[in-house]
Amino acid sequence: MTITMISGVMALGIGITFTIMAFRLPDASIGIPFAPRVFPAGLGILMTTLAILQIAKETIRIGQTEGSTTRDRDPYMRKILLSCVFAFVYAMLFERIGYVLSTIFFLETELWLFNGRENWKTNTLVAVIFSVAVYVLFSQALGVYLPRTPGIWI
């Protein structure tokens, strides 16, 4: 399946789900009762129609250029997925261990992905300087609250 086809199928799924959910929304207690439903329902129907058009167009295109249905795998997908996993871990650690420590962890992992394990010295330096600098800039200069590490001043 081509990526365009996958996006078409996903759009179709979103369109149908959204339409069904829109029609099942409760009535408004004031004004026209079905008013809150009209706009979302319209969007759902529009998305469904567009998705069908997209799938049809892609089906015709594939039919015309046979043999081009092989999908090229992105060799960087693994890194992107890992990136997201680390971001989720970062989000979970953020308030628990404080901004500075969690950000050092996050940047260290991202730099590992981007810059490579062998450059760990540079990576650590960048991670520590960035985290502390941003903490100082935000919490001291800009007055934005950032979670602190329990038991430590920062």
């Binding site: 759009a11 979103i14 929304l25 009535d27 809150p36 979302p40 969007l43």
Partner: peptide, 28 residues
């Protein structure tokens, strides 16, 4: 064009999430 419109409708869908300002109905 179709892809452009899919992106537009998706954006409008995202913006319709939350409590409806006029009726107080919770949506999506």
């Amino acid at each position: 064009t179709i892809k452009g419109f899919i992106a537009t409708v998706l954006g409008l869908m995202i913006s319709s999430i939350g409590i409806d300002g006029q009726s107080g109905v919770k949506r999506f």
